[in-house]
Structures are given as structure tokens and as C-alpha cells.
Amino acid sequence: MRKLVIGALVLAALGGCAGSKMNAARSGTPYKTLASDKAALVVAQCIQFGWQDETVFGVDAGGFKEPIEAGGFTVYTTGGDYFVDVRSAGAGSSVHYYAADDSMVAKRRLAALATCL
């Protein structure tokens, strides 16, 4: 039980750091803006699942999903360096992908999320 509590506290602390980093990134331009005919929840769940693929991302595999205001979801990595805001847009959804840098990891995460559109 104690390990579970400690694990929850660590995740909460990481979430706080990631949250401020993500809010700062949102004030700028997304790395890529995309659209989908699918519902926001379906797209967000698919991205989360894809980002958790250890064969693609190794130890950096991680995808967490949280609801955001105005009917959508944020899917993000452990440190918040890569995240996507998926919002409802008509019958489909809009996808705003943010990346800390223009690296191969950023491109790999973009490719994984593109398969969900």
C-alpha cells in the first residue's frame, strides 16, 4: 500500500511539472495541426495506445490521457515534452501536437499519432 501511495505522489509531482511546461508550449505555435473525421475520444485513446508502444519508443514509451475543458483530451508523455490536444470539431476532431524540439523522437511520435486520424 505504501508503494502505491508513493507512486501516486511521484506521478502527481511529475504532472505538475509537465502541466506548467505544457501551458507554456500552448502559448506558442503547435509543432503540427491536424484534423480527423473521428471523435476526439477515439483519436485520443488511439494516440495514447500508440505512444505506449515500447517497441517504438523504448524506455520513453508513455502516454497519459486527461480530459481538458471545452470537450477534449490531452495525451502527453511523462515529462510533458511531447503532447497533443485533441478537441471536438464538428463531427470530427482537431489535433494540435506540441513537441519540445524537432528531433527524431518528435517525428516518431507524430507518425504514431498520424495513424490515428
Rank of each mutant, 00 (worst) to 15 (best):
39 A>C: 11
22 M>W: 01
12 A>K: 08
11 L>M: 06
44 A>C: 08
73 F>T: 05
110 L>N: 07
40 A>E: 03
36 S>Q: 03
99 A>E: 10
38 K>M: 04
79 G>E: 12
13 A>Q: 11
56 V>F: 14
1 M>H: 11
55 T>M: 12
28 G>N: 05
1 M>K: 05
116 C>Y: 00
79 G>C: 06
46 C>Y: 03
108 R>Q: 14
27 S>G: 08
36 S>A: 10
116 C>E: 02
105 V>S: 15
45 Q>M: 05
47 I>W: 11
57 F>Y: 12
117 L>R: 02
29 T>C: 07
29 T>F: 01
32 K>D: 02
51 W>G: 09
26 R>E: 08
5 V>R: 12
112 A>D: 10
31 Y>V: 11
82 Y>A: 12
114 A>S: 13
78 T>L: 14
86 V>I: 13
45 Q>V: 00
52 Q>K: 15
8 A>S: 13
73 F>H: 15
46 C>K: 03
91 A>D: 07
114 A>T: 06
107 K>Q: 15
18 A>R: 07
60 D>S: 05
68 I>D: 01
61 A>I: 15
38 K>C: 04
72 G>P: 00
86 V>C: 08
38 K>Q: 05
25 A>R: 11
49 F>R: 10
42 V>H: 07
78 T>W: 10
62 G>H: 12
65 K>P: 00
101 D>Y: 13
76 Y>H: 11
19 G>Y: 09
97 Y>H: 07
105 V>D: 15
5 V>G: 00
80 G>N: 05
45 Q>R: 13
114 A>D: 05
40 A>Y: 00
86 V>D: 03
102 D>A: 10
67 P>Q: 14
109 R>G: 10
15 G>L: 04
93 S>D: 03
42 V>M: 13
86 V>E: 07
98 Y>H: 12
73 F>I: 09
8 A>H: 07
9 L>E: 13
20 S>K: 03
25 A>F: 04
110 L>Q: 10
103 S>Q: 15
64 F>M: 12
72 G>D: 01
117 L>I: 09
6 I>T: 13
81 D>C: 15
43 V>Q: 04
85 D>F: 03
98 Y>F: 14
100 A>C: 10
84 V>K: 02
100 A>P: 01
1 M>Y: 07
83 F>P: 06
85 D>K: 05
53 D>T: 00
36 S>L: 10
56 V>D: 14
83 F>N: 11
14 L>F: 14
73 F>W: 13
47 I>H: 08
37 D>P: 06
94 S>I: 14
107 K>F: 04
90 G>C: 07
68 I>A: 09
69 E>I: 04
37 D>I: 04
70 A>V: 04
30 P>R: 01
47 I>Y: 05
111 A>W: 07
59 V>F: 15
101 D>S: 13
30 P>Y: 05
84 V>M: 06
9 L>D: 11
43 V>T: 02
13 A>E: 06
22 M>Y: 03
111 A>Q: 14
76 Y>I: 09
38 K>I: 04
11 L>N: 08
57 F>L: 14
106 A>F: 13
106 A>S: 13
78 T>S: 14
40 A>P: 00
88 S>Y: 00
74 T>F: 05
94 S>G: 15
48 Q>D: 13
54 E>Y: 15
20 S>D: 01
13 A>V: 15
75 V>Y: 03
57 F>N: 12
101 D>T: 14
21 K>A: 07
36 S>K: 03
85 D>T: 09
109 R>I: 09
91 A>K: 06
